[in-house]
């Protein structure tokens, strides 16, 4: 092994990420190379130094007790936008209606996914803005199949917390502004995203914060602790709900720009 090769593996070895094979080769090299040896020893010492100096941090017990108090009073299940307890029976009964609505709304779903990238800045920044990074398993059809299973079996879905894409965790029927919508809950590993899909005509939208982007009117409304975004297109109201109140509407880009 040359010095250059040994130095290339420097941090991998120090961070204990190098393979056994590489570690062995590096060790052999260090035994015969004083310069590399002192460099390795220095970097190792530096890491120990930083860890040692920066790790000391005492924490009051106050934080723990206040967290315990908070979770005592908070509901554990995902928040709902409209009132009333969630009734499983009602959902099962509405399953057939839901499926019809889902199919009708499939087009809206497809649109929402594209919009979603933008109304969720975190996701975007971590996807480097590449829309194709969205989990391909997320096609609306796949989700509707999953939705059917949900309605037929249980409302919860065991998922791996390491998933990189969205995961459907619940489906229910909701009445909004006097109209029935399908209410889908997604989870992206850390955040919950809820989405209503439906078709409603002649609904008076209260004058929320409004923005027109490429001829489509978007309305923003902060509802309880969530932000709701409505948009009216070809007589259909789509409603997206995000948990994050700080979502900015500015980056909404018309779908056509992606295609």
């Amino acid at each position: 092994m040359t010095c250059e090769e040994a130095l290339k593996l420097l941090y991998d070895v120090i961070d204990k990420e190098a393979s056994e094979y590489d570690v062995k080769r590096v060790k052999e090299h260090l035994n015969n190379c004083k310069d590399c040896m002192s460099r390795y020893q220095f970097e190792e010492m530096f890491k120990i130094f930083v860890v040692d100096k920066a790790s000391s941090q005492s924490k009051s017990r106050q934080l723990k007790s206040s967290i315990l108090r908070t979770i005592e009073t908070s509901e554990r299940h995902p928040r709902r936008i409209t009132g009333g307890p969630f009734r499983f029976g009602m959902v099962v009964a509405a399953a057939a209606v839901a499926l019809v609505l889902c199919i009708v709304a499939a087009f809206s779903v497809a649109k929402f996914y594209r919009h979603r990238v933008d109304i969720y800045p975190f996701e975007k920044s971590h996807m480097n803005g590449v829309v194709s990074n969205i989990n391909p398993a997320l096609s609306p059809v796949t989700d509707l199949v999953t939705a059917r299973n949900f309605l037929a079996n249980d409302m919860h879905y065991n998922f791996n917390s390491d998933i990189s894409g969205l995961c459907l965790i619940g489906v229910e029927m909701e009445e909004v502004l006097g109209h029935q919508f399908v209410h889908l809950h997604y989870f992206d590993g850390t955040d919950q995203i809820s989405l209503f899909i439906g078709h409603a005509e002649g609904v008076d939208l209260p004058d929320f914060e409004k923005r027109v982007i490429s001829g489509v009117e978007y309305f923003k409304h902060v509802c309880r602790e969530c932000q709701v975004i409505y948009w009216l297109e070809n007589g259909t109201i789509s409603i997206a709900v995000t948990e994050n109140k700080n979502v900015d509407l500015t980056p909404l880009i018309p779908i056509d720009d992606y295609i």
């Binding site: 554990r76 299940h77 998922f159 917390s161 965790i169 989870f187 850390t190």
Partner: peptide, 8 residues
Amino acid sequence: WRFWDKFQ
């Protein structure tokens, strides 16, 4: 905590 039942 709110997502605790989703944690595997």
